[in-house]
Design a protein around this nucleic acid. Sequence first.
DNA 1: ATAATGACATGACGTACGTCATAGAAGGAT
DNA 2: ATCCTTCTATGACGTACGTCATGTCATTAT
Lengths: 216, 216
Amino acid sequence: MGQFLSRMEPFRRLSQAERLRLAAVAREKRYDKGDTIFRAGQPADAVCVVREGRVHLMKFLEGGQASTTCVMTPGETFCCLPALDGKPYPVDAVAAVDSTVICIPTSAFHELLRKNPAFLQDSLCLFCDRLRQVEDKSCMTYDSVERRLAKSLLMLSKKFGPTIPLTKQELAELANTTQETTIRILSQLSKQGVIRSARGKTTILRPEKLSAFLDP
Amino acid sequence: MGQFLSRMEPFRRLSQAERLRLAAVAREKRYDKGDTIFRAGQPADAVCVVREGRVHLMKFLEGGQASTTCVMTPGETFCCLPALDGKPYPVDAVAAVDSTVICIPTSAFHELLRKNPAFLQDSLCLFCDRLRQVEDKSCMTYDSVERRLAKSLLMLSKKFGPTIPLTKQELAELANTTQETTIRILSQLSKQGVIRSARGKTTILRPEKLSAFLDP
DNA sequence: ATAATGACATGACGTACGTCATAGAAGGAT
DNA sequence: ATCCTTCTATGACGTACGTCATGTCATTAT
């Protein structure tokens, strides 16, 4: 596990000794597809790193609608926010597929923040990235579903490459729309040759066409 | 100015000496209503504190639509984010009314972060609050305009009390909708006695009725 | 093999809400 | 007063998209 963390932000710049101490207190947990890792409002006892699989950070709206704010892939760290301010988790975390997650007790994380300025700096940058991402999403309300989907697909292709392994339902939750509308729009895009759609995955064939939806 | 800052987060816990040094490098600037304080993408040279007036953090969408992500009132600090990670401002800042803003060079801010752990901690908390707020907004896409407006009004009443000094257009930008729809919904709420609407301000008469829109 | 489940797909229908047009009030400037 | 600007208000109209209903494939389970 120390090996794994040593290649990931914000743990890259830890010393050998620090990494060993971290590995000693961290624990790996397995989650099945659909399992809830934690819920919004729970006191935050751990900072998490995806080891394997895929974790969605999401909110469940009053109407039962699910809204995914962030998709975390292997190597990504999530929920350092509660570790920084001591308040509860702001979102639910759900394993979108069978996943392994490394859980680091907030106390250990906090100690590293205090003792290692480089680690603090890297953690903050990670955190700032997160805020910038969320801020981008927050003004999507005014966009059409087509644009929201295009944005979501482009964002995902940065993590997964051209082939995005999410179901249409999951894409819908990211774009804050329904599965039906998502499918309708994606099948249009298929006909235009912009993407290819298959069960459980979507392949971007012409990213520039997707970007074109965003500019004008 | 030192006086003023000494009562505001995250500057409360600075020492007398630190505050004096800060006051020496900080500068007060006046902005007229409608002036842009900075634009998204600009390199961030200052952390700002509202001394007087009202500043809106906003994004301008491709269609020319304005979306307000945050309303800053006297005593509130904005854009410490770029000071933390060194990247550009993520949003535009616009004076919504004639305003005075205290500008603190990022270098000075950064130095305080490094030297004063309590200041770092308070800044982080402030920052985390911000992320939590934005995260709340990011899933509003699925809400009806009525709910988005109710949320916005309740949020604003925490800053301004029952009487909210924003124009209908400004409320619309917060709720990511149009001025027309905002007016239509607000005049319904007026008829139901939930609010009272006047030129440039809206008074909440029955906050509990507004909250009622959010739960079910 | 058959059933059961989940992902994908498509049609029909209604409505919330954006757009456009128009106009009345309330202030501000001259 | 008169003009001008800004804010508020209301009607008419179209459409994007949510909802419901139904059906077809793939997968997995029995």
